[in-house]
Simulated assay, not measured.
Amino acid sequence: MFDHIGIVVTDLKAARRFYDAIAAALEVQTKENGPDSFQFGKSAEQPIPYLWIGTLIPSYWVEGSKAGRNQSHIALRARDPAMVRAFHRAAIGAGGKDHGPPGRRKGVPSYYGAFVLDPDGNNIEACYRGAVAEAV
């Protein structure tokens, strides 16, 4: 649905540790994109869509914007509920803060997800949608 999304972080090393951990849990990859940023996506063979993560201030930001001031929310697709749980464990282990443990959400049919705040407070979600989610 999207081509790319970009978020600005205050500490690239902490962000890289967090996103490397959740990339492994979700079976995707991170890759270098220069000294001030990296990308989070499927693979070199399938580079789009991707999430750009860096410390550079984008030219399109309005005056007064800064990393961590405007929380972003990004939902990442998981293959199954086990992958959602792996994402949550990896994110917490890499410095993330729990913002909603793995589980079903009231009023959302066929959904199983988890929410974690990254080191800058962005709300990163992993979710699975499917019949198995109803049974978990």
Rank of each mutant, 00 (worst) to 15 (best):
residue 1 M to R: 11
residue 1 M to Q: 11
residue 2 F to P: 08
residue 3 D to W: 15
residue 3 D to C: 15
residue 5 I to V: 12
residue 7 I to H: 07
residue 8 V to Q: 06
residue 8 V to D: 02
residue 9 V to R: 05
residue 9 V to C: 12
residue 9 V to L: 13
residue 9 V to S: 12
residue 10 T to C: 12
residue 12 L to I: 12
residue 13 K to W: 06
residue 13 K to G: 05
residue 14 A to N: 15
residue 15 A to V: 13
residue 16 R to H: 08
residue 17 R to E: 01
residue 22 I to S: 05
residue 23 A to I: 15
residue 23 A to W: 09
residue 25 A to P: 09
residue 26 L to F: 08
residue 27 E to G: 06
residue 28 V to A: 10
residue 30 T to V: 04
residue 31 K to Q: 01
residue 32 E to L: 09
residue 34 G to I: 09
residue 35 P to Q: 02
residue 35 P to M: 07
residue 37 S to H: 00
residue 38 F to Y: 11
residue 39 Q to S: 03
residue 39 Q to H: 11
residue 41 G to Y: 13
residue 41 G to A: 00
residue 41 G to V: 01
residue 43 S to E: 01
residue 44 A to W: 13
residue 45 E to I: 11
residue 48 I to C: 00
residue 49 P to I: 00
residue 49 P to F: 03
residue 50 Y to K: 05
residue 51 L to R: 04
residue 52 W to A: 07
residue 52 W to K: 15
residue 53 I to H: 03
residue 53 I to Q: 11
residue 54 G to T: 02
residue 54 G to Q: 00
residue 54 G to S: 06
residue 55 T to N: 00
residue 57 I to C: 09
residue 57 I to V: 03
residue 60 Y to T: 08
residue 61 W to I: 07
residue 61 W to T: 07
residue 62 V to S: 15
residue 64 G to A: 04
residue 64 G to R: 04
residue 64 G to S: 08
residue 64 G to P: 02
residue 65 S to A: 11
residue 65 S to N: 14
residue 66 K to F: 00
residue 66 K to M: 02
residue 67 A to D: 15
residue 68 G to L: 14
residue 69 R to I: 03
residue 69 R to A: 07
residue 71 Q to G: 09
residue 72 S to F: 04
residue 74 I to N: 05
residue 74 I to M: 09
residue 75 A to W: 00
residue 75 A to T: 05
residue 76 L to S: 13
residue 77 R to S: 07
residue 80 D to Q: 09
residue 81 P to R: 14
residue 82 A to G: 07
residue 83 M to Q: 15
residue 84 V to C: 07
residue 85 R to A: 10
residue 86 A to W: 03
residue 86 A to H: 05
residue 87 F to R: 15
residue 88 H to N: 11
residue 89 R to W: 02
residue 90 A to V: 11
residue 90 A to P: 04
residue 92 I to R: 14
residue 92 I to M: 12
residue 93 G to M: 09
residue 94 A to Q: 12
residue 95 G to L: 10
residue 96 G to K: 07
residue 97 K to C: 05
residue 97 K to W: 03
residue 98 D to Y: 02
residue 98 D to L: 06
residue 98 D to K: 14
residue 99 H to W: 06
residue 100 G to N: 02
residue 100 G to Q: 04
residue 101 P to W: 01
residue 102 P to A: 10
residue 102 P to K: 03
residue 103 G to R: 12
residue 106 K to W: 01
residue 109 P to W: 04
residue 109 P to E: 12
residue 109 P to C: 03
residue 110 S to T: 08
residue 111 Y to Q: 14
residue 111 Y to W: 10
residue 113 G to N: 10
residue 115 F to V: 05
residue 115 F to Y: 12
residue 115 F to Q: 10
residue 116 V to E: 00
residue 117 L to T: 00
residue 119 P to V: 10
residue 120 D to I: 11
residue 120 D to H: 10
residue 121 G to H: 02
residue 122 N to R: 07
residue 124 I to R: 14
residue 124 I to Q: 08
residue 124 I to G: 00
residue 126 A to L: 11
residue 127 C to W: 04
residue 127 C to H: 13
residue 131 A to W: 09
residue 132 V to R: 14
residue 132 V to S: 12
residue 135 A to Y: 07
residue 135 A to P: 15
residue 135 A to G: 07
residue 136 V to Q: 10
residue 136 V to F: 01
